[in-house]
Nucleic acid binder design. Structure first.
Lengths: 117, 117
DNA sequence: TTGACAATGCAACTTAGTTGCAATATAATT
DNA sequence: AATTATATTGCAACTAAGTTGCATTGTCAA
């Protein structure tokens, strides 16, 4: 893998722990072709630097994959705003059936956020 | 809302508790136009007869929305097979932060299924 | 049986994401 | 520094899921 200035720019957007869709990145970096953005998001995810979140239906979002940070997400059905939710992963694992061996957990909550209620 | 023979056929596919994508329904009912299928899946979901499941990324699946049946889903990352997982909703709610008021919970598990390991 | 309107089919469209391929950038080797 | 291998990028064209407009057909009550 070679160094790339464009990949650096893409990755920099996530440093503040933003959750971004491919389209968000495309809009923030109009000088980079969308194909390059899609390819880098896929690459960074397969390297474990980003993680993919499927909270918005039909659209992948991405965020920094920080070791030990197992938060989940809430999405407002009205304004689509996404709010991170801290979940105790140990407690969560305890209430899941023992016979299934999963490698990944994605807990998606939805409803109306405070602003929309 | 009027009675419709085609809607009945679509709904009948779910009676055995199958989880089906729009495409599954389209393939099983080639005599019905895909637009009709999409519109009925949306309608039946908004009526609460079906529920939408977003376990396959980028593709909506549907299943009967049975009162009190709060199972979740596991998907095999290899063969894409989906397996229902019984989850104690009360216990799950207990470990979530009290300050968020969600109306919906979707817990998606993934990994390799027994056949693929 | 007729009139209102829900349901349907067709074609065309939208949106997210992918693929092929040629051009360019990076970095190691001579 | 020039050469070379190959990773990265951009463009255009494509795919797949789902949607929209509109004319036609089906359902059902008056």
């Amino acid at each position: 893998m070679k160094h790339s200035t464009k990949r650096d720019l893409i990755l920099k957007l996530f440093k503040d722990r933003s959750l971004l869709t491919a389209n968000d990145v495309i809009n923030k970096l109009p000088q980079i072709d969308k194909v390059t953005i899609y390819r880098n998001l896929t690459l960074l995810t397969s390297l474990g630097i980003l993680r993919e979140v499927n909270i918005k239906k039909g659209i992948s979002s991405f965020e920094l994959n920080i070791e030990g940070d197992y938060h989940q997400h809430f999405i407002c059905k009205n304004c689509e705003k996404v709010i991170p939710v801290d979940v105790d992963i140990k407690k969560l694992k305890k209430i899941l059936p023992k016979e299934i061996s999963f490698s990944n957990i994605e807990l998606n909550l939805s409803g109306k956020c405070r602003d929309c209620k």
